[in-house]
Amino acid sequence: MKPIWSAKKALIWTLLAIGAIIMMTPIIFMFSASFKYNDQLYDLALISSEPTLSNYVYLSQNTQFLTWMVNSFIVAIIVTLSVLFFDALIGYTLCKFRFKGRTVIFVAILSTLMIPTEMLVIPWYIVAKDLGILDSYLGLIFPGLMSGFGVFLMKQFFQGVPDEYLDAARIDGLNEFQIFIEVALPLVTPALSALAIFTFLGNWTAFLWPLIVTSSADLYTIPVGLSSFSGEFQSEWQMIMTGAAVASLPTIMIFLLLQRYIIRGVILGGLKG
């Protein structure tokens, strides 16, 4: 019998643990600083001798962080729902229907994956300006409502759904849209959750487009708000860290709650996408 803990294994484990601590250091220090007063910052102690919530109180009373959070949630949720519905519908149609032009449409949608967002932001900005939707929710969300990545992912997954499921529902008298909603969608929930994770995360952390399209603080999303707030509060690092903590908390919380699904989703999305 080999011992369960050989010296080599113990060494590997220790090194991995040190690595894990290093990885978590920025996040830990961020939260730690958010509970400190300014003059305790250069103290390396993680938990201050007199922890305080005053930074959080200040942020909620004197800044628009709450508004920015709400904006970010609204944008990320609308975009995610739209992407889930439309990308699944497009992927399903391209996978399960035979009609002229199917391949052309699929290749066309796939080709949009090669266009970097940065190339599109200038035309988007001009169109948004012409339509008068700069600095509005509509302006924030319109570029993300459907994605080529999601279409590709969903099409891959629908390939694994046997046509018999759909035929059985046809015999039961459902129309094609009902079949999509009631039969096809529930069969690909892992793919939907993977797509939801990527889309929500991408939109929650998105910076470039919200920075360009918004100009009034009422419409900032949390990254834009945090960036502008931090620019003004330079030197008030405990405030900046509190803002950063507020911005990071939702995704970290969601991860802690749904860890297994998220990791599985990231693998599915990463490998199939």
Partner: peptide, 26 residues
């Protein structure tokens, strides 16, 4: 009515829901 080779049972539904699917649709 048709019975399929791979059964075409919906994995997310109970047996009852599967059997009654067509009736509920009607």
């Amino acid at each position: 009515a048709m019975v399929f080779q791979n059964y075409a049972l919906y994995p997310h539904m109970s047996v009852f829901k599967n059997i009654s699917f067509g009736l509920r649709a009607a």
